[in-house]
Design a protein around this nucleic acid. Structure first.
Lengths: 146, 146
DNA sequence: AATTAAAATTGTAATCATTACAAATTGGTA
DNA sequence: TACCAATTTGTAATGATTACAATTTTAATT
């Protein structure tokens, strides 16, 4: 697996340092759309010297070279995704969890209206409540009616 | 016009204070998808005592009551939109300008797969280069080839 | 194996948007 | 006028991100 990740980074034109392989490995094995903090604290166990600056630097390299996606779905923290195939995202306004959802079919007809805009990237975000948080919300609302 | 904005806020259940009317008025007359700073510095001319905290508070009230949209399209600053009709947004990676674009047609079929997610809001973001920045980019790239 | 230069990593300090909070102000009501 | 609640204001704190200089690693060359 680490060998494959090394080759994967090289394909993308990224020098596969130990830290970069570790971050990429984390992204490809955790589907939580992690924040910088999440990545850093989890990798600190196996790489005690890992600095947060390196995680920032590495994610910038990955994103700039098309090996990861940067999501602005969460106002608090930037989130990252190692899944670069087209898909959309859902964030729960209760617990903040982020899930992949099916890609929508882009309406090329309406997009072609904007010939003066060179679109390089599309992000589709859904916001709402996951099942668990929705149930909790219903309970709370019922409490308040008493 | 200010009278209409007052009524509009009241319809949304918002107490139409002078500051709130001013912010709403700004949003409805400027299609730049402004940041807090832009709103504050522009309104400071006519309301010298306006504090930035009030702009933050007011925008929160507007968003919470459905009178404005909060956009997370720009990693640097949160942007706000007084146009609450369904539409998508484009941000230029060169100059940072944000434009409205046609709403895409949501693919209800694929969304219905996620019955366990209660979706309350959809945001569609396109990133790329506006005409001006695209031309500048082409010029720079030509320079570098020399 | 030693030398060297470039690239990558690290830690600290700075930046800057946003939030917390307490004091002051405003507006409506008795 | 006096009072209460809502709103506004200014200041200070928070916290994510960036800047930067020093250190370490890597890879190539002798």
């Amino acid at each position: 697996m680490p060998v494959k990740i090394k080759a994967y980074l090289q394909e993308k034109g990224i020098n596969p340092s130990m830290q970069r392989v570790a971050v990429m490995h984390y992204l490809l094995n955790n589907f939580t759309h992690p924040t910088v903090d999440e990545i850093h604290s989890n990798l600190s166990d196996s790489i005690p010297t890992l600095s947060k600056t390196t995680v920032y630097n590495t994610l910038k390299v990955l994103v700039d070279n098309g090996a990861a996606l940067q999501l602005t779905i969460d106002e608090k923290n930037t989130r990252y995704d190692g899944n670069i195939t087209p898909h959309a995202h859902f964030i729960c306004l209760g617990c903040g969890c982020v899930h992949d959802v099916e890609p929508i079919k882009l309406d090329e007809v309406s997009l072609s209206m904007y010939k003066n805009l060179r679109i390089t990237e599309t992000q589709v975000y859904y916001k709402g409540f996951c099942e668990k948080c929705y149930q909790e919300k219903l309970l709370k609302e019922a409490e308040n009616k008493k």
